[in-house]
C-alpha cells in the first residue's frame, strides 16, 4: 500500500519556525513568497522596494513566529505584517496615499491619463491599468478579496480597520473600476 505524504499545514510550519527550524522556514518561504511579493509590489509599483519589504516580512516571521497565537489564520497574520510594512513605506514616500481622513462616501473618480492607456487595448491590460489607478487603500482590499479570495472579516484584520470600512472600500473600488473601464471602452452598462 502506497504511503500518502501530506504537506505540513501553515500552522505546523509556524510552530516549527518558532523553534527556529530552518527547513520549515524555507518551505514556508517557498509556499508564500510569490503571493506576498506580488501583494507588496502591486501597492508600491517598485520591485526593488518590494524585495526589501518582502525580506523584512520574512525576517519578522522568523523572529516572531513564537508570538503567533493562532487566533487568526496564518495568512491573515503574515498579510497583516506585509500590509503594515508596505503602508509604513508608502506613508514615508506618499503621505496622501494612506490618509486616515479618507472620506469613504466619496466615489474615487481618479482616472488615468489617456496616454497611459494607448497601449492598453486588451481587456486584461485595461483592468490592470485601472486597478493601478485606484488609491492604495482600495487596491489592497481589491487584491485581498479577488486575488487571495479572503473574506471581509479577514481583510479587516489585515488592514486593521472595521469590517464596514472593508465593505465600503471594495464597493467604491468597484465603482471606480467600472467608471475607469467604461471611459475607455465606451461601455456604460
Amino acid at each position: 500500500m502506497a504511503t500518502q505524504i501530506t504537506e505540513p499545514s501553515d500552522e505546523e510550519l509556524i510552530e516549527r519556525i518558532a523553534r527556529q527550524d530552518r527547513a520549515a522556514f524555507d518551505l514556508f518561504y517557498k509556499r508564500h513568497e510569490k503571493h506576498i511579493y506580488f501583494f507588496i509590489q502591486k501597492k508600491l509599483n517598485d520591485s526593488f522596494e518590494a524585495y526589501d519589504i518582502l525580506h523584512e516580512v520574512f525576517m519578522e516571521i522568523w523572529r516572531k513566529a513564537d508570538r503567533f497565537e493562532g487566533r487568526s489564520k496564518v495568512s491573515t497574520w503574515f498579510f497583516g505584517i506585509a500590509f503594515n510594512k508596505t503602508v509604513d513605506r508608502i506613508r514615508k514616500k506618499m503621505p496622501d496615499q494612506f490618509s486616515e481622513d479618507d472620506n469613504e462616501d466619496i466615489v474615487d473618480e481618479e482616472v488615468l491619463n489617456p496616454m497611459e492607456l494607448v497601449g492598453a487595448t486588451e481587456e486584461a491590460t485595461l483592468i490592470a491599468k485601472c486597478i493601478e489607478a485606484l488609491k492604495a487603500t482600495q487596491r489592497a482590499v481589491v487584491q485581498l478579496a479577488f486575488y487571495e479570495d479572503m473574506s471581509y472579516p479577514e481583510i479587516a484584520k489585515i488592514i486593521g480597520r472595521p469590517e464596514g470600512t472593508v465593505k465600503t472600500r471594495i464597493f467604491h473600488a468597484k465603482q471606480a473600476l467600472k467608471l475607469c473601464i467604461s471611459k475607455f471602452t465606451g461601455d456604460r452598462s
Binding site: 513568497e33 510569490k34 518582502l54 486584461a124 486597478i131 479577488f146 473600476l177
Partner: peptide, 27 residues
C-alpha cells in the same frame, strides 16, 4: 468577470531563491 481577470494576472518574477539566500544570510 473582474475577479477572473484579476486572478488571471501573471504574478511575474519574484526574488525566489535569491531572496531566500539573502534571508539565510540575515538569519
Amino acid at each position: 468577470a473582474l475577479r477572473a481577470n484579476i486572478k488571471a494576472e501573471d504574478m511575474g518574477q519574484s526574488p525566489g531563491e535569491l531572496g531566500l539566500a539573502r534571508l539565510h544570510k540575515a538569519i
